[in-house]
Design a protein around this nucleic acid. Sequence first.
DNA 1: GTGATTGCAAATCTTTTGCACTAAA
DNA 2: TTTAGTGCAAAAGATTTGCAATCAC
Lengths: 141, 141
Amino acid sequence: MDRTSTSVTALGRLRAVGLRPTRQRIALARLLFEGSDRHVTAEQLRAEAQAAAIRVSLATVYNTLHQFTTVGLLREVVVEPGRSYFDTNVEDHHHFFCETTGLLQDIPGDSVAVGALPSPPPGTQISRVDVIIRVRRDATL
Amino acid sequence: MDRTSTSVTALGRLRAVGLRPTRQRIALARLLFEGSDRHVTAEQLRAEAQAAAIRVSLATVYNTLHQFTTVGLLREVVVEPGRSYFDTNVEDHHHFFCETTGLLQDIPGDSVAVGALPSPPPGTQISRVDVIIRVRRDATL
DNA sequence: GTGATTGCAAATCTTTTGCACTAAA
DNA sequence: TTTAGTGCAAAAGATTTGCAATCAC
């Protein structure tokens, strides 16, 4: 048995962050974290749960996504008005966002170098720097 | 009379982009562009219009903001789920966003250097690069 | 006149909320 | 038990839409 992050159980993850491991949270954690990094919306995750015969209400999906975000298991990405994406990759990294298809993709953290940052407004501290590279599908002529 | 951008009339701006200069568009353009750069939401702009005794429906405010964005008079900035800001500064620049207060501020384009960009996904072209520096108010102890 | 634009109200969509019910410890 | 968590349905927000009335040209 190795100890790579993909082998951490859903139960273990929940315990590690102090969230009570309920049936729903365990099931959603499995959907989210077993497999490679991904970006999901609440609605998408609910649909997946449904497809996997997991009974979870949409309200609980929202609660869970926000709780996971609060404890650092997920990261919220805002690229479109009126819809939130949740990213299972919480490492330092940035995003490509295709305005044509709505597809969001990770960019490895070290392949975008943001130079010296300007000092933040007085009385504030930087909490995060988001870089979103917006792209468009080439016109198909 | 100088020719700085602040002296361009609302009428002139609309003509320049080929939008029919209606009473509402002229009034909103005045609110938006007479004065320094700003970030507004649809609701804020409607409130300002109301305060200035300009009769405009919210639907028209939305239409107008989107039309102005399409023709390059405004730029849409998405930092929070569920709310769009429109920026009257369409030059190349980035933003500070205070998660505590919701305040959005411009960062001059040249004070954030984004290094070599990774190549965009196959079949796509970069349309824009957004850098959002998220900050938080210092805890007041 | 004629087509573009507007206003209004209803509809849509995502997300949040209140509260009775259920489950974890 | 006791308290945290869940589901449902209603509510809340922001934005969009349909269509008749109005305006710019």
